[in-house]
């Protein structure tokens, strides 16, 4: 026998439940993650803006970017203020690093993507994610309106699961428990629902057997059409037909024998 109805419907319900939990979970998690990321980005955006402001003030005095020694002090101080900052870099229009909280990197080049982002950013912050973490940056614009380079701040991407840490496990257990309870409820519900169907079908089946074996009264004519009336009509008619055919058979046998 194939799967009973209740099992099929239970399977469908559980599948839907699993799918719904998975998709809502995924969407909600990533939405919350994006809230978190946006918060982190704006947090470091504030720092980058301060560096930009400082550097542009000095650019306005006519100094070329690579001579802005005080900028090095500013970014060093920023990094001390916030231990989560991995590094702050100031680079020129060609991508060469002029100032860096990691002094060893001065003279190296930033990825071309940063230079492009800075050149295209206008006066808006840009954000980039790479394998090492997240970056928020701003272009440096001199008093002629040309982009002289950019400031970027590297920080580790913050992940919701890291922040949740230990409570994540508890949360998962709790969720699992709730889901299990409701899954069981769904299965019980569908068995109850289809138990009724099964019972009625079995009753009808046995009625059919009884009618076929013993016959029944013809149905009243004015019964409204429904599955039940069609069924009852069918049962009666089948019984009648079988009897009729058997009678006819006997008649023919009798004919055969008598002759």
């Amino acid at each position: 026998m194939a799967w009973p109805l209740a099992r099929k419907v239970s399977a469908a319900l559980l599948g839907i439940l699993a799918g719904t939990v998975a998709t809502t979970g995924f969407f909600t998690y990533s939405k919350l993650q994006s809230v978190l990321s946006a918060l982190a980005e704006s947090r470091y955006g504030v720092v980058v803006y301060a560096v930009k402001h400082n550097a542009e003030d000095q650019l306005a005095l006519g100094f070329p970017l690579r001579q802005l020694r005080p900028v090095q002090d500013v970014i060093d101080r920023m990094k001390v203020n916030d231990s989560r900052i991995r590094g702050i870099e100031v680079f020129d229009a060609s991508g060469a690093i002029l100032f860096d909280t990691d002094r060893g990197a001065i003279g190296a080049s930033v990825p071309p993507a940063w230079v492009r982002a800075a050149a295209a950013a206008g006066n808006h912050p840009f954000a980039i994610t790479d394998e090492e973490g997240r970056i928020v940056g701003l272009p440096l614009v001199d008093s002629l309106g040309t982009v002289d380079g950019g400031v970027v701040l590297r920080y580790p991407g913050v992940h919701l699961d890291d922040l949740l840490g230990a409570s994540l496990g508890g949360l998962a257990r709790q969720a699992g428990l709730v889901l299990a309870v409701f899954a069981a409820l769904g299965v019980a519900g569908s068995y109850r629902l289809f138990g009724g169907v099964r019972q009625r079908l079995e009753t009808m089946d046995s009625v059919l057997g009884t009618v076929l074996a013993e016959g029944a009264d013809p149905l009243p004519e004015d019964e409204p059409a429904s599955f039940e009336t069609d069924f009852a009509g069918f049962a009666v008619k089948a019984h009648e037909t079988i009897h009729d055919l058997e009678d006819a058979m006997q008649d023919v046998e009798r004919l055969d024998r008598l002759a």
Binding site: L13, I16, L17, T20, V21, T24, T28, Q174, A175, V178, L179, V181, F182, A183, L185, G186, G189, S190, L193
Partner: peptide
């Protein structure tokens, strides 16, 4: 109705 009962409360509770 059964599907609503099975889907909505657990997700609400977990959330």
């Amino acid at each position: 109705v059964l599907a609503v009962l099975v889907l909505v409360p657990p997700i609400g509770l977990i959330a």
